[in-house]
Write a protein that binds this DNA or RNA. Structure first.
Lengths: 162, 162
DNA sequence: TATGAATAGTCTCATTATTAGACTTACAAC
DNA sequence: GTTGTAAGTCTAATAATGAGACTATTCATA
């Protein structure tokens, strides 16, 4: 059966996931952000099957995250790059990386991290906080329906504790 | 064929994705963070097939993100909750939500957002920044190999532009 | 121009994952 | 006991993923 679409859900998280696609989508974005632009570049660095890559790239382009253009210097090549929307997914990758680096590498610590290119110091740790800068844990945060929320969503939030 | 594992990659992003699983994993976490704890609760709110949910929950538990315990008050129920590691994925969901809310809902704006439970003001926007608080764009950031990085990873980073 | 290599895909076929929905088991309420 | 609820499991159909061969186009070079 076809995978169920998340795009109908009135939720920014679901919409983002639908646009990125799946795990391959995130990894393709990681490579695109750090210099890869050629089809075979993604294949070599990720070990992704060629047909899967073609499908994923089409999806990312269709969702306005990546773009494709012919290479001016070599007519055999296409170049894949990030749109402005795609570039803004950096913060998502950073959040994933910081979590994985903290929880998934045990004692020996993370093998890589994002850093300021100029100072080579690690990027600041992302934190959930109030407008005043007060850190917020899970218990301090709630989900609120905006003006455009469908009635069903507002009902769903009513049922939430707190 | 079985989906290729991301877990061998020496990268926090890949490790996080391997632990969360796929799009369903993120959505299960979203529900768990905002009050759902029963098996049928996830089924009803997500529309996820029961067998898929069972598989995904097993994976999240195996990776130390969620936990399962019998309900003390009703012997029929199990309760699914987040571990401390799972709770810290809030920032990942927030990053996804803020991106989706900005880029995926057009003119009418986002239907929901995370807010401070007390003040009901939206949570602060996540930004990639230096330790000093200087905002960093994609061009200002690079990936650096840590002490535990395998040699192949260091070579890979050498090839990157900048 | 002819030849060979590089690049970006596409094609086939085998295997795995996802899905809908019925079914089972255990417990609770009456 | 009877009925209902909760948490899964099972089956069969369909879709996605995988490895690897293959094609088409363009470049480099003799």
């Amino acid at each position: 059966m076809r995978r169920k679409s998340f795009d109908d859900q009135a939720c920014g998280i679901a919409r983002s996931l639908e646009a990125i696609g799946d795990g391959w989508g995130f990894l393709i974005l990681r490579e695109a952000m750090f210099g890869v632009s050629a089809f075979d570049g993604f294949v070599e660095r990720l070990g992704i099957p060629r047909n899967t890559l073609a499908t994923k790239l089409d999806g990312l382009i269709a969702h306005g995250i990546m773009l494709k253009e012919p290479d001016q210097e070599d007519g055999r090549r296409s170049r894949y790059g990030l749109t402005p929307a795609g570039e803004e997914l950096l913060v998502v990758l950073l959040a994933l990386q910081q979590w994985g680096n903290k929880w998934r590498f045990g004692r020996k610590g993370p093998p890589s991290f994002m850093a300021d290119r100029a100072t080579r110091r690690p990027v600041s740790t992302l934190i959930v906080q109030d407008k005043d800068g007060t850190p917020l844990g899970l218990g301090d945060v709630t989900m609120i329906a905006g003006p455009s929320a469908p009635a069903a969503l507002k009902r769903a939030f009513k049922k939430l504790p707190g």
